[in-house]
């Protein structure tokens, strides 16, 4: 089975977050999300309080995945940048490394060019960090879940899932 478990430790996430906030500041964008291609939210920065980031992450990953298939159908390997334009808010998505997507949500206070510029820079740096994470997890111990965690989860599920 393909084992591509993603483990992110604090030092790495701090690095990632500082990079993202630097990018936000430079691009003057509203918020940024870092999403796994599987649809998991890795981290986020900026004004995300009003957003349902869990659902957003799943949908953005889905959107990116379908675009990737479209790319294949037209003979392209992958579209590495995706842009949704709205009336007020716009979304810029760019590929980070092999498995993550950097999503920047911005409005008319900045321009697509600025966002692209900073997102490109940040993507390259983030990709480097992810490579380090990958190298680390290749040599490190694979993560697991303790028996107690699994048991407690089962107990909690019994409480919650009642007909």
């Amino acid at each position: 089975m393909a084992d591509d478990t993603l483990i992110i430790y604090e030092e790495e996430i701090n690095l990632i977050e500082s990079l993202m906030s630097k990018m936000l500041k430079g691009a003057e964008a509203r918020c940024a999300l870092l999403v796994d291609k599987d649809g998991h939210l890795i981290t986020r920065q900026g004004f995300t309080h009003s957003l349902d980031t869990t659902a957003l992450a799943a949908l953005l990953a889905g959107s990116f995945a379908s675009t990737r298939e479209i790319a294949r159908l037209v003979g392209e390997e992958e579209f590495s940048v995706l842009f949704h334009q709205g009336k007020k808010d716009h979304i810029h998505m760019s590929l980070v490394g092999e498995r993550s997507i950097l999503v920047v949500i911005f409005d008319d206070r900045t321009t697509i060019g600025m966002v692209r510029l900073y997102a490109k820079e940040a993507s390259a740096e983030l990709a480097r960090i992810f490579e380090q994470i990958k190298a680390k997890s290749a040599t490190g111990v694979k993560p697991g879940i303790s028996d107690e965690f699994a048991d407690m989860t089962q107990d909690k599920l019994d409480d919650i899932f009642q007909d």
């Binding site: 084992d3 111990v141 993560p143 697991g144």
Partner: peptide, 16 residues
């Protein structure tokens, strides 16, 4: 996921 961990890790060491 439990069996995937070969040794006790952060998540498990905490609880273990």
């Amino acid at each position: 996921a439990k069996s995937a961990g070969t040794r006790s890790q952060p998540a498990s060491s905490e609880t273990a």
